[in-house]
Design a protein around this nucleic acid. Sequence first.
DNA 1: CGCCCCATGTAACCAGTTACATGATTTT
DNA 2: AAAATCATGTAACTGGTTACATGGGGCG
Lengths: 188, 188
Amino acid sequence: MALEHAILVSLLEKPGSGYELARRFDRSIGYFWTATHQQIYRVLARMESAGLLAVRVVAQQGRPDKKEYSVAAPGRAALSQWLHEPIEPESLRHDLAVKIRGAAFDDPAALVREVERHRRVHGDRLAHYLAGELRDFTGPEAPAPPDAGQELQHVVLRGGIAYERMTIAWLDDVLATVRRLGAPRPPA
Amino acid sequence: MALEHAILVSLLEKPGSGYELARRFDRSIGYFWTATHQQIYRVLARMESAGLLAVRVVAQQGRPDKKEYSVAAPGRAALSQWLHEPIEPESLRHDLAVKIRGAAFDDPAALVREVERHRRVHGDRLAHYLAGELRDFTGPEAPAPPDAGQELQHVVLRGGIAYERMTIAWLDDVLATVRRLGAPRPPA
DNA sequence: CGCCCCATGTAACCAGTTACATGATTTT
DNA sequence: AAAATCATGTAACTGGTTACATGGGGCG
């Protein structure tokens, strides 16, 4: 149940509403965890009724009211406990690998198109991450003496960058391999 | 619903029982997809009743009977259709990254222990993958003229190897970063 | 007038995990 | 005698996705 803990970390970094959290999950937190607004609202409600979070209704002008959540003491304790528990190193779960092995029984041209498409997406993500790194960490606008929180955010981002670079290189390997095989076998 | 398709690919590579599939999901297929036997049995039953698979009960000596599944024509068609549909390039979902950012609000020593543990697991996985590569693809026992299916299996395995290497390098980066933060910062 | 942004949620469904259950055979 | 392997499954639960729903404000 790491979504709960991701929310705790994000709210410790900065309190905010469900809507704001959803947008963070499209950005920085989303580098390594995704969540839809529906699920975020549901989990926030559960965490609040469990006493992990405090809510404050904030009236706004020209906008609907929002519920600003922040971490209560039991929430901080729950996060700390989780941080001290070992978690399972997760395994890959890669649909594309299924497709690659499936291509032995089907048209390889379709696989080439699909892999090229994925390669473009990962190229875009890499560019996006690199731009974020420049903006927040290595560019001239970046805060000169980074604090511990920023160093940790940066090393997480470097992980995303390394992942995208690795993936792109692998997809190139896949493309070269499939093209070398040519048309191996007609579908029976 | 990629488990269905992973099962179709695996059964095309070689027909087998639910138990055998579960074993395969601990090995080669498991490099990029995991599944428990419970789920495999449930999905197999559903696929069979949908006419995607054919079953044959095989009596064995000294062992329980087994149900050997193989791919029926509609199953092959379903796989082919899926192979021609684009799929979403998936995003990372990495609990450890949540922990790393959470360490800004907690004891970094616990994080160091956890990261070291993960690094060992990924080191073991890498060694396991490399051994498999030597055994099946690059060693003297490997089949001399590899067919298309083997080339594709190999490129998937290379992806797993690249992933583990990248992850290990990143975890080293994380360790160096956290240890540097733990050390007293020299006054500017 | 239509579309996007802000902001919140409900309901139905699906995929996957964990726990429970059985029983023979083979290995240590 | 105990543990592991072969072989099959059910039941309860949890986490996540998709579809549906509402409503004001700003912009072109």
